[in-house]
């Protein structure tokens, strides 16, 4: 990802969900996006994740101007370059962990054999190789979120977008998940994480703060290491 410059207006006179925001996320960064609800951080995320289009400004992802892409091309970008992690996991309830992880590869057009192999590898990377054939209901919240992270990683994206990934988890499990994010970040994956909890944001290397649709703060910090928690898990 080279640079990201964008601004956004929502309607002519209504609330500016995002008002001329300019920011750049560099490759390999771990960025936390903070702000109270209604601050525009979710809108920012949706634009970053190519789920939404800006009605003003420009967004370049990996050197590609995203604004001009067709809806199919955007789907391909989401599929190959971006991995999503949600607050509520969003796993398909009737599918096993493995089939859930395989889903992005289905849309990437991979064959069954390759999908199975890569899904197993991704589950191993989040420490769930022995839970591959469990359904989400048979897994704990933390385990479900790990499955979701494995799903986000399986197509080898350059950017991992996490929207309140610890919002539905207790604090011990949250720490656990954050340690996993840090480890992934050290392995070279760019992470943008939306949260309203300062405790969570502490684990990132940079914090972007939003208020009333504007970017009001951008500062780097030394991330608090969550590795000790990971060792426990």
């Amino acid at each position: 990802m080279e640079g990201l410059t964008r601004s956004y207006r929502m309607g002519p006179q209504v609330v500016h969900a995002l008002d001329h925001v300019t920011a750049t996320v560099r490759r390999g960064e771990f960025v936390a996006v903070m702000g109270p609800s209604g601050s525009g951080k979710s809108t920012f995320m949706n634009l970053l994740g190519c789920l939404d289009r800006a009605d003003g400004g420009r967004y370049r992802l990996d050197g590609v101007e995203v604004g001009g892409l067709s809806s199919d091309a955007l789907a391909a970008v989401r599929n190959r370059k971006i991995g999503f992690v949600f607050q509520s996991f969003n796993l398909l309830p009737r599918q096993t962990a493995q089939t859930n992880v395989e889903l992005p590869m289905v849309y990437a057009g991979l064959g069954r054999a390759a999908r199975g192999e890569r899904a197993r590898a991704a589950l191993a990377a989040v420490g769930l190789e022995r839970r591959a054939h469990h359904r989400p209901t048979q897994l704990s919240g933390g385990q479900q979120q790990r499955v979701a992270i494995a799903r986000a990683l399986v197509n080898d994206p350059m950017l991992l977008l996490a929207d309140e990934p610890t919002g539905a988890l207790d604090s011990a499990t949250s720490l656990d998940i954050m340690a996993l994010f840090q480890r992934l970040n050290r392995q070279g994956i760019t992470i943008v994480l939306v949260t309203h909890e300062p405790d969570v944001a502490r684990h990132a290397g940079r914090v972007l703060s939003f208020r009333d649709g504007r970017l009001v703060g951008d500062h780097s910090q030394i991330p608090e290491d969550a590795l000790s928690a990971e060792a426990v898990a």
């Binding site: 199919d72 789907a75 391909a76 999503f84």
Partner: peptide
């Protein structure tokens, strides 16, 4: 929504 987010085309 999830399928669309992870790369399903319409």
């Amino acid at each position: 929504g999830l399928r669309l987010a992870i790369g399903a085309r319409r």
